[in-house]
């Protein structure tokens, strides 16, 4: 600042004064521009170290045979190994199966309950709190409880099914039903989130639309079908895609319920668990990296779709 004012005093003549003024403004601007970069240093240091570097390192590793210390370049062999491996495709199948059913059950159910909560005059907040409670519980603790809740002989789910005359399932004790156990847990855990998001967006629909419909004599169900549902299309897309991306990354609950190999008989081993098993119990870093890259590409496609559909501008 002192230097700038000195400059102003020493220069004479209207032309040079204007020039120096422009110069000082420029300097000030440059200085303030630099300050803005300082604001961004912590985040961009993080991006460089914990995002950019690992992504490229992971790509590099996927072309190497590696156990953490010794590395040999082997080209595309890791990708070939992964893409021809039965357990990998099994894990893809498990991930997709659990994810698809979790989503097609939870979103409609959550939306219906959000609509119900939205239309009850009393106890809205109470229901919100209750329904969101499972989502607050860590999925690890929830899995721990569900191992007992779904126990074929002493669990409460089979007891309840039996007492209303429905057939019981073996749940996690058999590879035929174990995926349904994970789906049930996932629905229980996720539905609160779906309800909260739906409620927030339901309450954002303008009440004038409903009023106009009521004047035209539309019934409650007609209003729900022709005003509410179409207005929620964006919300459904958001839930569908974030839910799907989350489902592709499923790991915690299947690890607690079935260990890294997803027992019984690998029936609940997800892609994440496959990567963990290969990378951190077998220390086959190259193969695990190739598998993560395949998974990353799948996730990227869906995230990209999400950004396209949503209003988040890129």
């Amino acid at each position: 600042m002192a230097k700038n004012s000195l400059e102003l005093e020493t220069t004479s003549g209207p032309n040079s004064q204007l020039k120096s003024e422009v110069e000082t403004i420029r300097q000030k601007k440059r200085k303030s521009q630099l300050t803005w970069y300082i604001f961004l240093i912590p985040s961009f240091l993080g991006i460089l170290l914990f995002m950019v570097y690992p992504i490229f390192e992971s790509l590099r590793l996927s072309f190497y045979q590696s156990n953490g210390t010794i590395e040999n370049y082997i080209g595309l062999a890791n990708f070939k190994t992964v893409l021809t491996s039965g357990p990998f495709w099994n894990s893809v199948w498990n991930t997709f199966f659990i994810g698809i059913f979790q989503i097609i059950i939870t979103i409609p159910l959550g939306f219906i309950f959000a609509s119900l909560i939205n239309s009850t005059p009393k106890g809205q907040n109470f229901f919100k709190v209750i329904y969101f409670l499972p989502n607050v519980t860590s999925i690890v603790a929830a899995s721990m409880i569900f191992a007992f809740v779904l126990h074929p002989e002493m669990g409460i789910v089979n007891y309840a099914l039996d007492s209303i005359g429905l057939p019981t399932l073996k749940w996690l004790a058999s590879p035929d039903t174990s995926k349904w156990a994970v789906i049930l847990l996932a629905v229980w855990h996720w539905i609160g989130f779906v309800i909260i998001i739906c409620l927030a967006n339901l309450q954002a629909i303008s009440p004038e639309m409903y009023e106009a419909a009521r004047i035209d004599g539309a019934s409650g169900i007609q209003q729900w079908l022709f005003i509410t549902v179409p207005n929620m299309a964006g919300t459904f897309a958001f839930l569908l895609i974030t839910g799907w991306i989350g489902a592709l990354q499923r790991f915690n609950e299947v690890y607690v319920l079935g260990g890294p190999n997803g027992s019984p008989a690998r029936s609940i081993q997800t892609m994440g668990a496959f990567i963990y098993e290969r990378g951190f119990t077998g220390f086959e870093f190259g193969i695990a990296s190739a598998a993560t890259y395949i998974m990353f590409m799948i996730i990227l496609v869906f995230t990209f779709l999400n950004l396209k559909i949503s209003k988040m501008k890129l």
Binding site: L49, P54, G272, M295, F296
Partner: peptide, 22 residues
């Protein structure tokens, strides 16, 4: 800012092994 938004697309799994090594 676009770079920041891009980080939203990067899941943990592909970074797991490099971060472990780092």
């Amino acid at each position: 800012f676009i770079i920041v938004l891009c980080t939203l697309m990067i899941p943990m799994e592909p970074r797991l092994i490099p971060l472990y090594k780092l």
